[in-house]
Design a protein around this nucleic acid. Sequence first.
DNA 1: CGGCAGTCTTAACCGACCCTTAAGCACGAA
DNA 2: TTCGTGCTTAAGGGTCGGTTAAGACTGCCG
Lengths: 219, 219
Amino acid sequence: MRLLLVEDDPALGEGIRAALKPEGYTVDWLLDGLSAVHAIEQESFDLVILDLGLPRLDGLQVLKRVRSGKHQLPVLVLTARDATGDRIAGLDAGADDYLVKPFDVAELKARLRALLRRSFNRSEPLLEYRGIVLDPSSQLVTWQGQSLSLPRKEFLLLHELLVQPGRVLTRDRLQQVLYGWDEEVESNALEVHVHHLRKKFFPELIRTVRGVGYMAEKA
Amino acid sequence: MRLLLVEDDPALGEGIRAALKPEGYTVDWLLDGLSAVHAIEQESFDLVILDLGLPRLDGLQVLKRVRSGKHQLPVLVLTARDATGDRIAGLDAGADDYLVKPFDVAELKARLRALLRRSFNRSEPLLEYRGIVLDPSSQLVTWQGQSLSLPRKEFLLLHELLVQPGRVLTRDRLQQVLYGWDEEVESNALEVHVHHLRKKFFPELIRTVRGVGYMAEKA
DNA sequence: CGGCAGTCTTAACCGACCCTTAAGCACGAA
DNA sequence: TTCGTGCTTAAGGGTCGGTTAAGACTGCCG
């Protein structure tokens, strides 16, 4: 589960991040609104935690930009206690939930779970590719009449590849999907996952683009 | 189908109303508890959607008044997430179902349908799955010609799983079914219940989806 | 009041699975 | 052939869920 945290207070940001990592979230953290917009447009997140008071581009503007896109990306907004107007404005701009600072970490976690659950129940479409059907909400795959559950990373990887067949995904891109930005893996873990997927399904499922990355052939 | 909506937040009230109208419901909307009591006594509704935090007369009081009457009017209660006591109190006062804000509209619709179906049939339909028959009204289960009574939590759990086989229920979802939204259980109680069910029936009854939750295989 | 039965949570332990790592092999390009 | 890149395989550490038993709590009955 990959989250984008947009928060300019270093202490708070670090705190949130530290709290969420053990829960199994991959947390990417940006400190200003402009970078956030770019990241959201180019990467793929499951949820955004957005502070409203941000340098370079205000949180509300970020929210509006996100909503103008097609993504139904859930956004949890953090507001200062006394910023009454923010709340209203945020509602209008389409935030999915709020938290007023200072807040309890347990509360944050609970709201995240609720939001993610909602967004996944929101019938995320099944993904089909050559007889393989992915169900993002349950992390389950149907293949040759059997339903099997893939390990989390394998599912993430496969999902990323099949979202848009024919597109070549660089090694870096894939590693970001699996690990986020910082925690780099300096081994061939990615290749091992690919190997497992090829074995579970069929070898031609994932084509190697030597020196670049991997792709699923356009059907 | 005529519903009474009692909700003092104008935005939320309008939202719910707008969502339900296209479904063919007639929605009357009141903003305080006192008017609600009067309306319920004098008019005839098929169901009430009741917020607990209300001006003039608290939602709980409304609920008690309704229940003291002879009407078996189904009541769906809306509660704020952090209102810890509300849930328990609401249960005691006889609400038929709950929804915690913020909620998904699809969820609301689904619960309404379920409630209305229940109230019209009076007898909730038996649930059958691979030779196991659940009777929600008596909390009894028939299995291999024997009728046995399950402990409450086990029954709830099993019922939730069998309502829609093939659907994966997250741990969170199941814990909410068993415990509600506030009281967190920081142990493996859920797994223990699952274990008991598997032992009483057969192990394949409940399939583990690692990292996600549990499911009953589609028959 | 005391004991019993049923329910549920807690905690410790264990096995299975997930993921990374690393070493050796295969294969394509120069 | 040689080098570089990716593939294959297996081992280990960590995490998750399963299993079991003990104890708290409740309601019931003597």
